[in-house]
Amino acid sequence: MTNDLFIQTLHPATHDLGGFKVHRTLPHKERTTVGPFIFFDQMGPAHLPPGGGIDVRPHPHINLATVTYLFAGAIDHRDSLGTYRTIEPGAVNLMTAGRGIVHSERSPAEARPGGPELSGIQTWLALPRAKEEMDPAFEHVPKERLPVVDGSGAHARVVMGTLWGATSPVTCHSETIYADMALAPGGSMPVDPSAEERALYVAEGDASLDGQKLEPTVLYVLRPGTSAALRSERGAHVMLCGGAPMDGPRHVWWNFVSSSRDRINQAKDDWRNERFPTVPDDSEERIPLPVVTPKTVSYP
């Protein structure tokens, strides 16, 4: 779909992982990035069976940063830097892979007996070429430190970048915007027009933009400079993401992103031959390198 508001409409690839669904809109056959966002996954919403949970075993990344943001539930993050952090709704986990990092994501033990909830967004940001091989890092920013901007029966939490005059403390490696807009029934919120590349995604509920209905789990790429009002009849969570265009094309293979195919091939060889670092307290298992070209990252 193209019109006065949108230049592209990206429908998801949906995967049923036997307890919850994942909707992936980036990378897409029609578009690889929106600003630095090169991967956009919605997990759930789901209520997993009692005693169960997610167990994403240790796996590697290079030349990207992951951003985890939850609506419900909790995830224990561990990585090869020695980080252990539980993320809960409204907080941000930013993991910068740089030259290479390994991490795992699992449901907390205390949430498993009753069956854990899972609902949220996980994105990857391609790093600018000058920072692709930077030192790996991890950053957790609690919900209370993220600025909130009020609309009419709505508010927006600024997850990354500067929006509506408010700036998130989360590190940006390039120009990035990211926000969670929560609209009550009948609420409205203007969409900040400042970033060159922007997209909207209805994660929960119903929403329309200047009267045009937005379908859930679809990524709508906005025309540059478009000013419009987001509205909801019954309430919604709508994500706004984007930033400056990338400084050249990126290649994506499994959990690896890079401006260089040779660098991705080196990462494949390093993981196959166990040259990546291990995750303290979670080194007994790992996700093996795919033997065929993967279409998705590996969940449990």
Rank of each mutant, 00 (worst) to 15 (best):
C172T: 15
G161L: 00
G186T: 05
K213Y: 12
S227A: 15
E132R: 08
D210H: 10
A229I: 14
A166W: 01
A203M: 02
V170S: 00
E233D: 11
P136F: 04
S119E: 05
R198Y: 12
D135N: 12
Q122A: 04
T226F: 11
E133T: 13
A179S: 12
A229D: 13
G165L: 00
Q212A: 15
S168D: 04
G153A: 05
P147N: 08
Y178E: 05
P147E: 04
R145F: 01
M134P: 07
L222V: 08
R129F: 00
W124E: 04
R198G: 06
A126M: 02
V158P: 05
P224D: 08
P185R: 10
V158Y: 02
Q122R: 02
L118V: 06
C172N: 15
P216R: 14
P136D: 01
L118A: 03
H173Q: 13
E204V: 09
R234S: 14
V148L: 10
R129P: 00
T167N: 04
D135Y: 15
Y220N: 15
V141C: 03
D210M: 10
F138C: 10
P147A: 06
I177T: 08
R129M: 03
T217H: 13
S232E: 05
K131I: 03
G225N: 07
V221T: 04
P128I: 07
R157T: 12
L183T: 00
K131F: 08
L125M: 14
D180E: 12
E139N: 01
G120P: 04
S194E: 07
R231T: 10
D150H: 14
T167D: 04
V191L: 10
W164H: 12
T123C: 15
G161Q: 06
V149M: 05
W124C: 01
P169S: 08
A184Y: 01
E197H: 09
K213L: 15
D206I: 07
G153C: 07
L146I: 06
K213P: 03
L214I: 13
R157V: 07
C172A: 13
D150T: 10
S208M: 09
A130T: 12
P142F: 01
R234N: 11
A199E: 03
T167M: 00
S208T: 11
A156H: 02
R234A: 14
Y201C: 02
L219W: 04
R145H: 07
D206S: 09
G205K: 11
A229T: 13
H155N: 12
M181R: 02
I177Q: 06
L222Y: 11
S188E: 14
K143Y: 10
G205T: 09
A166T: 08
G165H: 02
P216F: 12
I177H: 05
L125P: 00
P185D: 09
M160N: 07
A182Q: 15
V141E: 00
K213C: 10
V158T: 06
D180L: 03
